[in-house]
Amino acid sequence: MNLAQALLSGLLIGGVYGLFSIGFSLAFGVMRIVNFAHGGVVMLGMYVGLYAFDASGIDLLVSIPAALIAGGLLGATLYVTFYARFVGKATLQQLLLAIALGLIIQVLAQMAFGPNAQSIRSAWGSQYLIIGTMFASYAQIAAFGVAVVATLAVEALLHGTRWGHAVRAVADDAEAAGIVGLDAQRINLGAFSLSCALAALAGSVLVTYYPVSPPVGFGLMPIALIATVIGGLGSVKGAFFGGLICGVVEQVASTAWTPALQDVPLYALLLIFLAVRPFGLFGRPSAH
């Protein structure tokens, strides 16, 4: 693999990283919830994609709506049952709860789907677009396209609709939101459901070219954390660009160095950002 190929592959998977990082960042930015079970939701989204493909034979047209609905419902359930009482606090208890939920999701997935890695054998995954010396599968390209469209849609939702403005108002000052008549708990429920829907959506497109097994979810959490810090805590477009950077750094390190150590530059990047620019690319120095 040459460097240009690594850049392209990194960019394509980075879009999907960006997509699930947006969801992670949204839950933190609006509710101060650090959802370590977020990767578990991505993993469940991958199984939704897998089974939707098995059942229908059509990839994304079925798996995307199925994953959005499943992720949204799971998010609503997690919020009402567990997270609502921790809103705005970002406590150690909340962190431990989230890790426990992530583990429970992983174990349940292992019981339901078995421990082995499974992948989709779709026509897309084995057809390649060749550009000069570089290549990309149609599945990779489609997944990237979905990630970009979904990111733009979330940005439009947050900045162009009254519901989105209300979400941003609650993120800014939940108490002040209450006194102007916004029901913060109901808005949080919607925002958390959206966060998990985006995670499941990312999973459903990722599985078209990336094998799924129960531990995949936790494996993705460092990416979500690093992308969110790089992009700026709570910033949607920041998390997306953070995901792109993570994808590129990972792939280039894997090509130029060794795949076994592909994550090392990612952690180095995290440390550099925390030391030099802790509010990230799109964060504000004053923000919380």
Partner: peptide, 20 residues
């Protein structure tokens, strides 16, 4: 109108009014 104003700092003036 709370002590310290508590406007939504990251929202525009018009968005502040709209959500209210």
């Amino acid at each position: 109108v709370p002590e310290g104003r508590r406007v939504f700092t990251h929202l525009s003036v018009e968005e502040n009014l709209g959500v209210s």
